[in-house]
C-alpha cells in the first residue's frame, strides 16, 4: 500500500498519526482513503471543488509532483510527502 506521510499541521484529524498506509491506485484515491479512516483530513488538503489546496507541495518518493497531481498513479510502497509552510513573520 502507498504510505501518506502526514505533516504536523495536518495531524489533528489523524490523532497524531504521522503516516497512514492506505489502498489506492492514484493520489486522489489514497487521500479519499485517508479521509475514510480519519474524517476531517480531506478538507485539510482538498478544497470545496475537490481540487488540491494550494499551500502544500507534494512529493512522491522524494520527487516533486507537478501537473495533475491528484491523478498521479501510485504503487504499493510509494511514499507521499506533503510539505507545507508554517511561519509567523
Amino acid at each position: 500500500m502507498p504510505i501518506i506521510q502526514i505533516p504536523p499541521p495536518y495531524r489533528g484529524p489523524t490523532g497524531g498519526a504521522s503516516e497512514v498506509d492506505v489502498d489506492g491506485a492514484t493520489l486522489l484515491e489514497c487521500l479519499q482513503g485517508v479521509e475514510a479512516k480519519y474524517p476531517g483530513f480531506g478538507p485539510l488538503v482538498l478544497d470545496a471543488k475537490g481540487g488540491l489546496r494550494k499551500f502544500a507541495t507534494w512529493f512522491r518518493n522524494g520527487d516533486k509532483l507537478t501537473g495533475d497531481v491528484l491523478s498521479t498513479p501510485l504503487e504499493p510502497g510509494d511514499a507521499i510527502d506533503i510539505i507545507s509552510s508554517v511561519a509567523g513573520g
Binding site: 478538507p43 499551500f55 510539505i83 513573520g89
Partner: peptide, 17 residues
C-alpha cells in the same frame, strides 16, 4: 520546496483551516 518563496502571508488560508 522553498516554502517561503511567496512569504509568510501565504500561510493565511492554512491558518484559517
Amino acid at each position: 520546496p522553498q516554502m517561503f518563496q511567496f512569504g509568510t502571508s501565504s500561510v493565511v488560508p492554512m491558518a484559517n483551516m
